[in-house]
């Protein structure tokens, strides 16, 4: 016999004029290896079909299911209920626009982020389709991959006090993305150009080193280290610039 779990879930349907933000409670008996994916799906199918939440891969790969679980942002599909107390409180991610209940609009935010940081290889080379690929050191490829593992779940943004206070802060995810391209020799952007994007208070100098991003990232990206490297690089870049032109 499993425990009897109590779920307190934030409810609000912004499109329904009669709806006001409130909390609904549901109870469910815990089963073996129950994840929040299994639990929420069951609640929706057995108790309240109108409950909104997002799952896609249910395997911790796609980043759809981030929500605030007992106060902490995390991926619901890879959260085993057995690691949680009997009472589980679920809230939608802050910072992002609410769609309804636990569902938030990450798509619009991330598209804007990707546009803002120029999340693609900037190059003036053209591809010769019949030539060999450019060579790359395997260790470097793996290093780039390490930073590319981000699933754009938004946990780092939601957990960041700075991002919560200041909506113009780009968040650790964007800074990490820049770090990824700075590593990549195929991207021909100069330090100066990266500086234009993140050498500001909306960028790396807005980060206050709260490290919640580092501590909640479900993919365990090395955010702390990358943020440190970026601040040093951008800091030096500014100093060099000052002496050259100032």
């Amino acid at each position: 016999m499993g425990r009897n779990l109590k779920f307190n879930i934030f409810r609000y349907n912004p499109l329904d004029s009669r709806s006001v933000p409130h909390t609904d409670s549901f109870s469910l008996e815990e089963t073996d290896s129950m994840t929040l994916f299994i639990a929420l799906t069951r609640i929706r199918e057995e108790q309240d079909p109108s409950l909104q939440f997002d799952f896609c891969c249910r395997a911790g790969i796609c980043g759809s299911c981030a929500m605030v679980i007992n106060g902490r942002p995390g991926l619901a599909c890879k959260t085993l209920t057995r690691e949680l107390p009997d009472e589980i409180t679920l809230m939608p991610l802050p910072v992002f626009k609410l769609i309804g209940d636990l569902s938030v609009d990450t798509g619009t935010w991330f598209r804007a982020m990707n546009e803002k940081v120029g999340s693609w290889i900037h190059t003036d080379k053209t591809l010769d389709p019949d030539a060999h690929e450019e060579r790359m050191d395997n260790a470097l490829a793996e290093e780039i991959y390490e930073l590319e593992r981000c699933v754009e779940c938004g946990c780092c943004v939601a957990s960041c006090g700075t991002a919560n206070m200041r909506e113009d802060f780009v968040g650790a995810v964007a800074l990490n993305r820049i770090a990824r391209f700075m590593l990549d020799p195929r991207d021909q952007r100069k330090e100066r150009e990266y500086f234009e994007v993140i050498g500001t208070d909306e960028g790396i100098f807005g980060c206050m080193g709260l490290l919640a991003c580092e501590d909640v990232c479900p993919k365990e990206l090395p955010l702390q280290d990358q943020l440190g490297i970026l601040r040093r690089k951008m800091g030096w870049s500014a100093v060099k610039h000052l002496f050259r032109f100032g």
Partner: peptide, 18 residues
């Protein structure tokens, strides 16, 4: 093969021969 190389050109960090 051309598609793989094209993706490399666009930024995939393919694992490489060591």
């Amino acid at each position: 093969p051309r598609a793989v190389r094209e993706m490399a050109f666009w930024g995939i960090p393919w694992n490489r021969v060591v």
